[in-house]
Design a protein around this nucleic acid. Structure first.
Length: 160
DNA sequence: GCCAACGTTGGC
DNA sequence: GCCAACGTTGGC
């Protein structure tokens, strides 16, 4: 018997518009868990479909709002599964080219662990060690990016 | 509301 | 496969 394969825990930054799903909304949800619906970018989808693993750490980021920044800590809480909003003609995320037989968009459930103080962009930028963070790059539009372990640990220290 | 950057679309 | 037009993102 070969032992189950393991890999080091990975870390992600996931953007959510608080008007749609804030860290408070996620914490208030059943099991503090929300399906990460509405991602319609292939690179972000591929992270959810192929790269993530249950238990991975998540920086819960508020975007498109008065105070953008990291607002909480969460973790990946499920395997990949089809995003149901792609099949719903009444959803803004409806995708007429998707079908149940051939879903295009896969999501993960994300479990909120705690709300933190808001760690805003200006403060993130004030730490040169974090300068390479994807979310700080000029006009990065990707809603899911990977965070390396050193950055994860530094950010958790800043939030402590 | 502005606007730069980027992904997607579709004609060729 | 190219590439211009278009739509979206998202901080400011």
């Amino acid at each position: 018997m070969t032992p189950p394969t393991t890999r080091p825990r990975r870390y992600w930054l996931m953007k959510s518009e608080p008007g749609e799903c804030s860290i408070d909304d996620a914490l208030a949800a059943k099991h503090a868990t929300v399906p990460w619906t509405g991602v319609r970018n292939y690179q972000a989808r591929n992270f959810m479909r192929d790269e993530m693993q249950a238990g991975d750490g998540v920086l819960f980021y508020h975007s498109s709002c008065p105070q953008p920044g990291i607002a909480g800590i969460a973790e990946i809480a499920s395997a990949a599964r089809p995003d149901p909003t792609q099949f719903d003609p009444d959803s803004p995320y409806f995708d007429p080219k998707a079908s149940h037989g051939k879903p295009r968009w896969l999501l993960r459930d994300v479990k909120a662990l705690r709300k933190t103080r808001l760690l805003g962009l200006a403060e993130l930028r004030a730490h040169p060690e974090l300068a390479h963070l994807k979310v700080l790059q000029r006009s990065n539009r990707l809603s899911i990016t990977e965070v390396n372990e050193a950055d994860w640990e530094l950010i958790l220290r800043l939030l402590a």
